[in-house]
């Protein structure tokens, strides 16, 4: 067989097999930079909600922008090409009492003792824009 060419037949087969091998490694590595980016954005939104509602930290959307450089909004943004959604759930304060001790007046604010103190508002949502 004439070998006077840049790639021999055997070398081309080897190149094809090498490419296939590398692709297989990528297939099973499950690595994707985009996934990491989305997960990071989702985590920013999630951290904001848990700090604000579960840990009662006084933090607002401007603080998140300053800290992370990302824009978070508790209302769905309109016209943004890419937003990442995040959510958290927090049980409401019992009888709207934010402290351990409280006084309730029957007929005024004691109706909370007649039914479960949750509604759809226990779901907190945020949208993160890169």
């Amino acid at each position: 067989m004439n070998k006077g060419i840049l790639f021999t037949y055997d070398a081309l087969i080897a190149l094809a097999l090498l490419s296939a091998g590398m692709a297989l490694v990528l297939v099973f590595s499950n690595y994707d930079a985009t996934a990491g980016r989305y997960t990071g954005l989702e985590s920013i939104g999630r951290d904001y909600l848990t700090e604000k509602y579960e840990n009662n930290i006084d933090i607002d959307e401007a603080d998140v922008l300053q800290l992370s450089g990302r824009t978070v909004s508790e209302t769905p943004p309109v016209g943004e090409p890419l937003v990442v959604y995040s959510s958290a759930f927090e049980y409401l304060d019992l009888c709207n009492c934010t402290t351990t001790a409280c006084t309730l007046e029957n007929g005024l604010n004691a109706s909370c003792l007649q039914s479960q103190d949750i509604n759809s508002s226990i779901k907190k949502e945020v949208w993160v824009t890169p």
Partner: peptide
């Protein structure tokens, strides 16, 4: 105490 509520 976790809760200490008075109910009138």
């Amino acid at each position: 105490y976790l809760i200490n509520y008075d109910v009138n």
